[in-house]
């Protein structure tokens, strides 16, 4: 049972913003609802107005634009994203990461925009988006704007979104090189769990290896210093150094899921494994 609120289905971006501004602090945007409705159910949130974004044109579309990469409507359910052929073939790491979110039931509702807007440090799609250097296209009181994913997360639960602003689309730039991505997530159980530590690695044919971490800092983070170590060296020693660098760059907390110390240790372990697997995958793909 939920406590009463009003539900409004916005028909346009403008209407959504207008509704949100009028509701002020009592307004909440709704996409998949798998986070919002849980928080309302648990009495952590008591909104006055819930503004459904799913009726806005383009919010649930996946479009390929020539030379522009892929544009994903923010309310697109994760399962639709995972099953999309273009996503699978060009942005496999994102599909893989999205696949680890919750259960089938959750992924049929949970959206890409929601996953990042909640700004959980453990958001599973975030490390992949960081590595693909996604652009977050938002809509707000002053119209549309573009935020680089690296500037989107501001802290646990905090984003660069302003009042009345929401994530409209996510643009994935085209990757010109062949690549192979790996997402390793350590949970408590093997399925349907939040990450204690997650690591994404994306190996590019040109020699670059991109690395991002989840659940070990106030926000999901890209660890460029660790990447730099692998720029010209890919040997065991370099992988070890990169993993150690990732650990240095992590700033986890202790919470009910794991201690800070365990998270640090696992950051190193999973980073090394992710790099190894990404390099091996790329090599296999090149053959």
């Amino acid at each position: 049972m939920l406590l009463p609120f009003d539900y409004v289905r916005a028909r346009s971006r403008e209407e959504a913003v207008d509704l949100a501004l009028r509701a002020g602090a009592g307004g909440r945007f709704l996409a998949g609802g798998t986070d919002l409705l849980v928080r309302i159910h648990d009495r952590q949130l008591r909104p006055k107005v819930v503004i459904d974004l799913k009726g806005i044109e383009g919010m649930q579309a996946i479009n390929s634009c020539d030379g522009e990469g892929l544009v994903v409507g923010a309310a697109t359910p994760l399962n639709r994203l995972i099953r999309d052929e273009l996503v699978r073939s060009r942005y496999g790491l994102l599909a893989e990461a999205a696949h680890t979110v919750g259960s089938v039931q959750i992924r049929n509702r949970a959206s890409l925009g929601g996953n990042i807007s909640n700004a959980s440090p453990a958001a599973d799609t975030a490390p992949a988006l960081l590595l693909y250097e996604a652009e977050i296209l938002t809509w707000g009181p002053s119209g549309g704007r573009k935020i680089l994913i690296g500037e989107f997360f501001k802290g646990p639960g905090a984003t660069a979104l302003g009042e009345g602003e929401f994530v409209f689309k996510v643009r994935l730039p085209i990757l010109k090189e062949r690549s192979f991505g790996v997402y390793l997530k350590l949970g408590r159980t093997r399925a349907v769990d939040l990450a204690i530590v997650s690591v994404a690695a994306l190996a590019l044919e040109g020699g670059e290896v991109r690395l991002a971490l989840g659940a070990v800092a106030p926000t999901p983070i890209r660890v460029r210093e660790a990447e730099a170590i692998l720029r010209n060296r890919k040997d065991k020693e370099a992988i070890k150094e990169a993993a150690a660098a990732a650990r240095r760059l992590a700033a986890p907390i202790s919470d009910i899921r794991a201690s800070r110390e365990y998270r640090l240790e696992m950051t190193e372990v999973l980073t090394a494994r992710a790099i190894e697997q990404a390099l091996a995958g790329l090599a296999a793909r090149a053959r």
Partner: peptide, 27 residues
């Protein structure tokens, strides 16, 4: 559970399984 964790409320909406505790009737 009411929180989308247990799946006991699973029904199909347009053929896809969802947690009926995490969807509004109006949706």
């Amino acid at each position: 559970c009411g929180g989308g964790e247990c799946g006991a409320c699973t029904v199909l909406v347009n053929g896809e399984p969802i947690n009926a505790c995490l969807m509004l009737a109006v949706e």
